[in-house]
Computed example of a mutant assay.
Amino acid sequence: MLAEIRQQIIQSNSRYKEAADVHRREQVFKVGGLVMVRLRRERFPLGSYSKLARRKLGPVPIVAKINDNAYSVGLPADCNTSSTFNVADITHYKPADGAIISISSSESSSSDAGED
């Protein structure tokens, strides 16, 4: 009887997973690519977040891939939060006019210093 119940639970869970996966989209980013990062209130220390603060930050380069669900990005020095983000908070950067964007040497040297 327990084996039968276990099998029913497994089948039920697989149906729920299939229904949830219909709306899921996989996002894979390349190291060095430019992205926009969403800054949530939870990422900041208590008292330092303002509702008038920026909601998104970018374009910032991806420094390292932790796994398919988490990436480390090169944040500016004045941003007092962790540089590791979930893919739910990262979107591809698309320039408004289609121009090629390059990162200045001052930004790349500050992100390179953190890798050592």
Score class of each variant (00 low, 15 high):
residue 1 M to Y: 08
residue 2 L to D: 15
residue 3 A to H: 10
residue 3 A to T: 12
residue 4 E to S: 11
residue 9 I to R: 12
residue 11 Q to W: 09
residue 13 N to C: 05
residue 14 S to N: 15
residue 14 S to W: 07
residue 15 R to K: 10
residue 15 R to V: 04
residue 17 K to L: 09
residue 21 D to M: 05
residue 22 V to E: 10
residue 24 R to N: 05
residue 25 R to M: 04
residue 25 R to W: 01
residue 26 E to Q: 03
residue 31 V to F: 01
residue 32 G to P: 01
residue 33 G to D: 15
residue 34 L to P: 03
residue 34 L to I: 03
residue 34 L to G: 04
residue 36 M to W: 12
residue 37 V to P: 01
residue 40 R to D: 15
residue 43 R to L: 06
residue 43 R to I: 00
residue 48 S to C: 06
residue 48 S to L: 10
residue 52 L to M: 06
residue 53 A to V: 06
residue 54 R to Y: 01
residue 54 R to W: 00
residue 56 K to I: 07
residue 58 G to E: 07
residue 59 P to H: 02
residue 59 P to V: 01
residue 62 I to Q: 02
residue 62 I to T: 05
residue 66 I to F: 05
residue 68 D to R: 08
residue 68 D to C: 03
residue 70 A to T: 12
residue 71 Y to F: 10
residue 72 S to I: 11
residue 72 S to V: 13
residue 74 G to R: 04
residue 75 L to C: 01
residue 75 L to E: 01
residue 78 D to V: 09
residue 79 C to I: 14
residue 80 N to V: 14
residue 82 S to T: 07
residue 83 S to T: 08
residue 83 S to P: 12
residue 85 F to G: 06
residue 85 F to M: 08
residue 85 F to E: 06
residue 86 N to Y: 04
residue 88 A to H: 10
residue 90 I to S: 02
residue 92 H to S: 13
residue 93 Y to A: 03
residue 94 K to T: 12
residue 99 A to V: 11
residue 99 A to P: 00
residue 100 I to F: 08
residue 100 I to R: 10
residue 102 S to D: 09
residue 103 I to N: 02
residue 105 S to Y: 09
residue 105 S to W: 07
residue 105 S to L: 10
residue 105 S to Q: 13
residue 106 S to L: 08
residue 107 E to T: 01
residue 107 E to V: 05
residue 109 S to Q: 15
residue 109 S to L: 12
residue 110 S to A: 11
residue 114 G to K: 15
residue 116 D to E: 15
residue 116 D to I: 13
